[in-house]
């Protein structure tokens, strides 16, 4: 059975379609790229969450995952490399009713944007940060990111990576995030649930999603295609909810298991509320610290 999205009968639409700028399809992502899979999870999470789409804004940086903003039919901002979080900071604080989602890649958020990442977590800004980790700068052809596994081949590490990779959940948790989870593009149901929880969580919530990059990372490292990578996740990932984040570092293909799960889910005062509370005594006549827009 085949269909178009604008099928005239009463069959239900693909759940992701109301979120897509369908006029921009097909997207630029390669066959088997895991980013589209994460978008499916995101769309279904938003639907279950019940946030009105008009109150949902998405901010991306640069790179393959940075293109997510351009494909989603939301108020969407494709910003500069690494700066999605500070842009989202201004957006959220100027218009607190918005649910602001930062959707970007490992190179963007943890590399060039690493400083903003830790400071937004420290402030516990009410942002949902979705980081698609494909272990490479794919848009520019496969350079080493701060998450590149040791000994993996990248164009800027032609003899193999020797630097230590980031443990992103630990970075987020130790910087002050209130929700931290890691899933993979294989674990779609759990990924969807994690995004849903992150959207509902007030404060800095962080979901890392490991995703295959068949054209660049997997091919260059002779690791097969998307199917092989997803099978690898299936076989090697161990779900350990509540695991201590300091123990969840990834050394892909040198360790027997990759720890995934919901690592952290705590309550802590969110930045905007803290700001309001802090200045409450100063404000005349119950005026809000920020008029809002």
């Amino acid at each position: 059975m085949n269909s178009n999205d604008s099928t005239e009968c009463t069959l239900p639409l693909n759940p992701v379609v109301p979120f897509l700028r369908t006029e921009r399809m097909p997207h630029i992502w390669c066959p088997g790229c895991g980013i589209g899979t994460t978008v499916n999870c995101f769309a279904r999470a938003v639907m279950d969450c019940g946030i009105p789409l008009d109150e949902l804004a998405i901010v991306s940086g640069i790179g393959c995952t940075g293109r997510v903003a351009g494909y989603l039919k939301l108020d969407s901002f494709h910003t500069t490399h690494g700066r999605a979080i500070p842009f989202a900071t201004g957006l959220k604080l100027s218009n607190p009713k918005l649910h602001v989602v930062v959707y970007s890649g490992d190179g963007d958020l943890a590399g060039i944007g690493g400083n903003h990442f830790i400071h937004a977590a420290r402030r516990n800004l009410d942002l949902t940060v979705i980081l698609v980790n494909n272990f490479t700068y794919a848009m520019t052809g496969g350079q080493a990111t701060p998450t590149a596994p040791k000994e993996s081949i990248e164009t800027t590490a032609p003899y193999g990576v020797f630097e230590e990779p980031f443990n992103l959940p630990h970075l987020a948790a130790s910087s002050g995030a209130v929700y931290v989870a890691r899933w993979t593009a294989y674990h779609v149901v759990q990924t969807k649930k994690a995004i849903l929880e992150a959207l509902q969580k007030k404060g800095f919530s962080f979901v890392e999603i490991l995703a295959p990059c068949p054209t660049i990372y997997l091919r260059r490292n002779r690791l097969g295609g998307a199917v092989e990578e997803l099978k690898y996740y299936k076989e090697h990932c161990v779900i350990q909810n509540g695991a201590d984040t300091k123990d969840v570092g990834i050394d892909l293909r040198h360790q027997d298991k990759v720890t995934i799960g919901k690592f952290l889910d705590i309550e802590k005062k969110e930045y905007y509320d803290a700001y309001q509370e802090h200045y409450a005594g100063l404000l005349k006549g119950g005026k809000q610290a920020v008029a809002g827009a």
């Binding site: 901010v59 108020d75 901002f77 910003t79 500069t80 700066r83 500070p86 842009f87 989202a88 900071t89 201004g90 957006l91 959220k92 604080l93 100027s94 218009n95 918005l98 400083n115 903003h116 400071h119 920020v290 008029a291 809002g292 827009a293």
Partner: peptide
Amino acid sequence: IASSICLQGAVWGGLKA
């Protein structure tokens, strides 16, 4: 770097910045 993009987020949120 953060300041100079943060204010632009605030502008798109509706404020002068």
